[in-house]
Amino acid sequence: MDASETQAVLSARSAARARAADYLARRHRFRWPECLPWLLAIAAFFLLPDRMTFGAQVLIMVMFALSLDLILGYAGIVTLGHAAFFGVGAYTVGLLIARLGYTEPISSLCAAAMVAALIGFGTGWFLLRYRGLTLLMLTLATAIMLQETGNLRSDISGGYDGLPGLTIAPLFGIFQYDLYGHVNYLYVLGVLGLIFFFVRRIVYSPFGQALTGIRENVRRMHAIGSPVHRRLVTVYTIAAAIAGVAGALFTQTNAYVTLAVFDFDVSAKVMVMLILGGTGRLYGAFAGAVVYMVLEDYFSKMSPTFWQFGIGLLLVLTVLFAPRGILGLIEGASGRAARRAGP
């Protein structure tokens, strides 16, 4: 090989290096389509002023699904008991108001996050040694046990009748919650924005990469020296805290809470939402929760007795035709468009 050939090989190699380094360095950067869900959420505030109560519930489910995406979509932890943390958050706020008369909203949210994180850490440390079906059963059992604990002490929890009439103090001491839920909606949207910012940082961090590694191949993670259990407990605790905040917002915006927040239905529903939207994609939580909630609302008005059939059909169609969820469909379509447009 003569000198000019060597030169050519070397420069081709350094170009390949630069390309590869660039790809990794840019991956976490903000992309414009990411504005879309937020713009839509703000547009909804102005265009659908009389649906803001419902809107707040949708945003709460987005947050709940986002917390599930962290553990299911990124770390590959399959759980059927994620309602446990939603419920713990919901009851932390409920009990603070009903039993202690503490009504300040923001600090209540923080308390809910901390209690849920504590329970997430405790149960996670124990049950994340297991995988697959065992883990599925253990997470399910966690939610049931928490629910039954509440039932056992119905003198405190209010049992299945719940805690009604929970009113919170004005937000920042100024903004009174109005009948139309306008303040509620903006409050929930603000909290969601903050939490989304955190989750996005985590997902694109080296820690987030390690979670993906655990999902992709746990044997390899052990072999390269990853403290797998510690990583899983960490993300499980974070997800529990976020689910707790979602639950807390649920209590605050509805002004009541019952033990139904721990129902298996709740755990299953959030998983369906996430799968519908697409797992491991951050925005799958948005797409899935919005589509699910809107269709559920529509179907239940259309046919109050058979509305679940519609949801079931939707799920079957998703699994058959969009196994990677709504976002998977969009990615596939935009990928095809990009290939058609250029080489």
């Binding site: 790809y23 976490h28 940082r201 961090s205 987030g208």
Partner: peptide
């Protein structure tokens, strides 16, 4: 990988 905050690609 203990870092939850920095972007993964930021360390050249």
């Amino acid at each position: 990988c203990n870092n939850l905050w920095r972007a993964a690609g930021a360390k050249r």
